[in-house]
Design a protein around this nucleic acid. Sequence first.
DNA 1: AATTAGTCCAACCGCGAGTTT
DNA 2: GAAACTCGCGGTTGGACTAAT
Length: 293
Amino acid sequence: MRTPSSSSSSRIKVLTPCCNKIGLKKGPWTPEEDEILTKYVSIEGEGRWRTLPKKAGLLRCGKSCRLRWMNYLRPSVKRGHITLDEEDLILRLHRLLGNRWSLIAGRIPGRTDNEIKNYWNTHLSKKLISQGIDPRTHKPLILNPNSSSDDNHIIISNNKTNSSSSPSSSSKLANNDNLNTINPNPISYNINNNNNRPEEITSSGDCQHQSCYAMLVNYDDDHMNIAVTTEGDDGMNCCTDDVFSSFLNSLINEDMFNCQNQQINGTLQDFDPFIASSTLSSNQNNPKRSMDE
DNA sequence: AATTAGTCCAACCGCGAGTTT
DNA sequence: GAAACTCGCGGTTGGACTAAT
């Protein structure tokens, strides 16, 4: 937690036990602590992290408990090396999403954002550099030295305009746990693209809900915007997670991606040739692989 | 064998945003 | 409506381990 002096906002934060590190243990977790935390969460469930340490009898802050559970103790966490398929998926997702680690992790079962982030920083970024590719932009290092770090990355916001939403808010909106409940507005996917001029097309997607969505892609000077509007049975956005999954799948999956390419007259292919080629090659052994695996 | 350099990854930190009071 | 609380994210750090000298 932030202390009042370190906060950039006008909100005044009061030190809470979670912030006050006095008496709280830091550093690596012991097997005994792991056992206590695992036992407690298995009984009480996830959440209420702030009060968990006291109730469970742990001398840790809530954030530390949550991190330990999420990244290590959770039963669904897959241990072991990242497979080639997973690596390929990470590369393509990062190409689309940038450093949205939680979002990427959400598409790779059993892997945590921290694990993927570490794997990226220690393996994949170096691998791309060795291949002459900028790991931030996925473009050749020589050809585009002045490109920003967000070039060609999808920015997801709950604003119809091209707002430059923060990574955290973007991730939260794209998280399936939150989409149905907190997003009253259409999601817009903004993809920076310095090479395309204004253009507008409409498309549709498949969703089991009625009054589902329309997808609008338009280019302004610097961005490609894909706005997904949903309206469910109750008039609220009922299936933005479905939409988001479909959209992401469409960008990853070869067939759907090619379909999108045709719909937008090849402009997306210009935007992202890497995806098209890498997907083509990577799916040769698993052509129907879905990101929802 | 000792020291240094490099790598890896679990954990910490600051911060923003949503929720509750 | 404002303040306080809580959660979760991405960036960074530091210690353990390994390789090189």
